[in-house]
Amino acid sequence: MARAVTPQRKALNTAIAAIVGALIFFPIFWTVLTSFKTEAQAIADPPVWFAFDWTLENYTAVNQRSDYLLHFWNSVVISVGSTLLGLVIAVPAAWAMAFVPGRRTKDILMWMLSTKMLPSVGVLVPIYLLFRQLGLLDTRTGLVIVLTLINLPIIIWMLYTYFREIPGEILEAARMDGANLREEVVHVLLPMAVPGMASTVLLNIILAWNEAFWTLNLTAAKAAPLTAFIASYSSPEGLFYAKLSAASTMAIAPILIMGWFSQKQLVRGLTFGAVK
């Protein structure tokens, strides 16, 4: 039985939530708004809100000036590439642990998790030197490898928690009904596994897209994804707020949209299934 709530109370709650939400979201809103201003309007005091000459010149300028598209493409290749590679390695492992659990399954899972606790900076020097030796510095391949290994434990864990929820009896039932292995996999298992796999992919693309330790330390001009490219704005020349805003807006928009779709999975993925 839901407790009765007066409309006034509900309106008050809504108003407070709207104000708090707007405050927290404000820096993002302001960045997007500034990206449509001229550089002079971007730093105007008092700040201009909506009554300015909306312009797309910053987007054009950013795209022309600094190979923005190359860095955007690097981000796409690195985040999608590392996620798919991770998936290929993780699906069999998670599958086996969920459906053929052994005595050591739990230990293996916990050990995999523990590799995630290794602070990146602790292995910065050897990875940097290895990459230099192997010619992997400032290459997309190098970053795909590192990000795959970093996120592999999360991918395995997420898949494992999803796969474990698929009831094994359904497989047996299908087998009894005369389904062969191929039919079993294609018609019974896959449809049940796909949503979990999609959530896993989504969350890991987000994590890889925003990763900002290895991408900053292992890339220079060529393979730098957006995280590293945006960092180059930290030593600005002249007026740059509007251009910074345009570059930032393009960098965060795709991931913001994906993130909003994956709110629920986010909790599960980031807490390793400890909170659902």
Binding site: F25, I28, W209, N210, T227, I230, A231, A251, I255, M258
Partner: peptide, 11 residues
């Protein structure tokens, strides 16, 4: 409220 989590650290 959730949005800031998806903004990359450098941005």
């Amino acid at each position: 409220v959730i949005a800031p989590f998806f903004v990359m650290p450098t941005v």
